[in-house]
C-alpha cells in the first residue's frame, strides 16, 4: 500500500539532511510501528509524506497504491486516502470543529467524485463516532483544538480519522500525553478501523500503546534510516534495553 524507497530529505532552508535513505513498505491490512530516539526523523517522515512545506526530497520515492504521492498537494494526498494524526495537533481559533470536519469530509468526497454528505447524515455519523471516543458535544462545537487538553486533542485526531476513513493512517505519537483510559479509547478507535484494506504506521516511544494496538511489524529508526525491522518483540526489546545497543549493533 505505502511504499517508501530510499527516501532522502533535507531541510529546504538549511543544508541539513534529515532522512538518509528510508526504505519501508506497509502492506494493506497491516500495522507497522516505528520507534526510535528523539530527533531520529520520525515526524519528518510523516510530514514529508503528508506534504508539509519546508522539506526537500533529494532522492527516493514514496507511493500510495502506486501513486507518486510526493508530487501531489497535501489535499490531494488526503483525497488519495493518506491521513496523518499530528504529534502536535494545530489550534485554529474561529473555525468550529464540526464545520472543519464537515468541510474536510465533503472536500475529500468531492475530490473522489463521490456525493457529499448532507448535514443531517454528517451529524448522525459524527455524533456516533464522537461518542465512541467519549468526545462530548461541546468539544465538537468549539473551535478546532482550541482550549482542548493534550488528551482531547489526540482523541480529536482519531475522531477525524474515523470520519475520513483513510486507507493509510499515520499516527505520530498519538499516545503521548494520554492517560491510561484515554489511551485505551484511542487504541480501540484505531482497532475499530483495522481492516484488510487499510494500513497503519504508528510512531511511538512506548510499548504500552503497542500492548493495545498489536503491530505486525516494528521498525527502529535512527539518524534518518530504518536501522532494524522485526516483529512485536523488537518493541519489547527497546522497552527493556533502550536504543543504545541496537544502534551500536547497527553501526
Amino acid at each position: 500500500m505505502l511504499e517508501i524507497k530510499n527516501l532522502h530529505v533535507k531541510l529546504e532552508e538549511e543544508d541539513k539532511q534529515i532522512l538518509k535513505g528510508v526504505d519501508l513498505t506497509v502492506e494493506a491490512g497491516k500495522v507497522h510501528a516505528i520507534m526510535g530516539p528523539n530527533g531520529s526523523g520520525k515526524s519528518t517522515l510523516s510530514y514529508v509524506l503528508s506534504g508539509r512545506e519546508g522539506y526537500e526530497v533529494t532522492e527516493g520515492s514514496a507511493t500510495l497504491d502506486g501513486t507518486d504521492i510526493l508530487a501531489l498537494e497535501p489535499e490531494e494526498r488526503a483525497a488519495e486516502g493518506l491521513f496523518l494524526a499530528f504529534q502536535y495537533p494545530v489550534e485554529i481559533p474561529g473555525v468550529g470543529n464540526m464545520t472543519f470536519m464537515r468541510t474536510a469530509v465533503n472536500a475529500q468526497r468531492k475530490a473522489r467524485g463521490e456525493v457529499e454528505l448532507s448535514s443531517a447524515d454528517f451529524l448522525k455519523l459524527v455524533r456516533a463516532r464522537a461518542q465512541e471516543l467519549q468526545i462530548d458535544a461541546d468539544m465538537l462545537k468549539r473551535p478546532v483544538n482550541v482550549g482542548f487538553s493534550g488528551g482531547e486533542k489526540k482523541r480529536n485526531e482519531i475522531l477525524q480519522m474515523a470520519m475520513l476513513e483513510p486507507k493509510m493512517c499515520i499516527l505520530d505519537e498519538t499516545d503521548s500525553g494520554l492517560d491510561v483510559d484515554a489511551m485505551k479509547l484511542v487504541a480501540s478507535g484505531v482497532n475499530a478501523l483495522r481492516d484488510e484494506g487499510r494500513g497503519f504506521l504508528v510512531i511511538t516511544h512506548y510499548q504500552r500503546l503497542l500492548d493495545h494496538i498489536t503491530p505486525d511489524v516494528v521498525h527502529i529508526m535512527a539518524d534518518g534510516r530504518i536501522l532494524k525491522t522485526g516483529g512485536p518483540d523488537l518493541a519489547l526489546e527497546v522497552e527493556k534495553n533502550g536504543y543504545t545497543d541496537l544502534i551500536a549493533e547497527g553501526a
Binding site: S50, G51, R52, E53, E73, P74, E75, R77, A78, A79, F83, L84, F86, P89, V90, E91, I92, V95, F100, T103, A104, V105, A107, Q108, A111, V144, Q160, L164
Partner: peptide, 13 residues
C-alpha cells in the same frame, strides 16, 4: 501551520 493542517485533512488551499 493552520493552513497545512486543514489541507492535510483534504480541504484544498
Amino acid at each position: 501551520e493552520a493552513l497545512f493542517y486543514l489541507r492535510s485533512r483534504g480541504v484544498p488551499e
